[in-house]
């Protein structure tokens, strides 16, 4: 900074003083604006979706089964009840936060993947309530491809896994067999299983569901052995023939905490959840969502339209709705 001396007016002659004054003005200005923002307003409204009768926001997890639920529910809500439906893509965990905050009204398929959240929001805070079962039964397990199980039939019991660990070695598995783990978001206690059952495998996590599916398809096409976390109902269930590896039977609490888990997975009755306000004041839409219940076969049908026949979710839903009037009519609220 330079200073000038030939300034005769009342202005301060040192530019750094100028800048100081400007800076102070800016600081003061932003402080005032900040204070105004805080004090001039009352409590902000905490919800912008919950409770409204003519618009429903549904949280949609990424997997195909969940997309099928949403596609059918959306179509029916819009056509039969005249309710506008906004679908937002978010994972299971995020969906609970959204229902708690009112950014989403309901989620149609929850796998109980985050028990801590169920406890916080459903039991403690009571901002999210159950909307009953979806009717679809989900199952998670460890799977190997059929072409491998045919050659080594005894692999279907976990006790024999170590015998074959060498077949599953990859560059990522640190000298042991590779276990392909799930999308971080999904319910899983595989690290515990591997540790506590002394399996010679390394848990190599998949970063996302699509990454895992792509990887498994690749290995399947190349007819390579692999051991993976897998679940049904699922997009690829008809394309890939997989055989489940039997793990020690699930008993309640055997997978908590994850570090101590030494058992397989339960069959889960997938559950719907909704924002507590919406459940109370949601009118027909809320009633419809509570009634929404279908079977694995129904969901599979829609999933197959989408993935095998490459139909858009809306078209797939429309086709199913046309064919299954008796199923969905029961979901409409009684007049």
């Amino acid at each position: 900074m330079h200073s000038s001396t030939h300034d005769t007016q009342s202005n301060p002659s040192n530019p750094s003083k100028h800048s100081k004054r400007i800076r102070n003005a800016i600081l003061a200005g932003s402080a005032v604006v900040g204070m105004l923002a805080v004090s001039a307003c009352s409590a902000a409204s905490t919800t912008n979706a919950g409770g409204s009768d003519d618009k429903v926001t549904l949280a949609q997890p990424s997997w195909a089964g969940a997309q099928a639920n949403i596609a059918v529910a959306k179509k029916l809500l819009e056509d039969e009840l005249g309710v506008e439906v906004d679908v937002r893509q978010m994972n299971e965990t995020a969906a609970f936060t959204a229902m708690d905050g009112g950014q989403a009204d309901a989620v149609l398929e929850d796998w109980h993947g985050n028990p801590k959240q169920l406890k916080t929001f459903v039991e403690k805070k009571k901002s999210v309530v159950s909307a009953g079962e979806l009717g679809v039964k989900g199952h998670i397990g460890w799977y190997v491809p059929k072409y491998y199980a045919d050659k080594h039939p005894d692999i279907t019991n976990w006790k024999n896994l170590n015998k074959y660990a060498d077949d599953f070695k990859t560059s990522e598995s640190k000298g042991k067999g590779q276990f392909i783990g799930a999308d971080p978001e999904y319910s899983q206690h595989d690290t515990g299983i591997i540790k506590n059952l002394d399996l010679d495998f390394t848990h190599v996590p998949s970063g996302s569901e699509s990454a895992q599916q792509e990887e498994i398809e690749r290995l399947y096409k190349a007819k390579k052995p692999f051991l993976t976390y897998w679940w049904t109902p699922q997009v690829l269930q008809n394309e890939l023939e997989l055989v489940e590896v039997e793990l020690p039977k699930y008993t309640k609490g055997c997978n908590v905490p994850v570090e101590k888990a030494d058992c397989g997975y339960p069959h889960v009755d997938l559950e719907k959840f909704m924002n507590a306000d919406f459940a109370k004041n949601g009118g027909d839409a809320a009633e419809f969502i509570k009634n929404f219940k279908w079977s694995n076969e129904d969901q599979d049908a829609v999933v197959n339209y989408m993935t095998q026949d490459k139909m858009k979710p809306e078209a797939a839903a429309e086709k199913w709705i046309k064919e299954n009037k008796d199923v969905w009519e029961a979901w409409l609220p009684k007049k």
């Binding site: 409590a43 708690d100 009112g102």
Partner: peptide, 22 residues
């Protein structure tokens, strides 16, 4: 845990942060 439980009720959120997000 604290954030999950208080996000929609605590004054810090009600009188300040929620205004931003709204």
């Amino acid at each position: 845990d604290w954030l999950s439980l208080n996000r929609t009720t605590h004054p810090v959120f009600l009188y300040f942060l929620l205004h931003i997000s709204n």
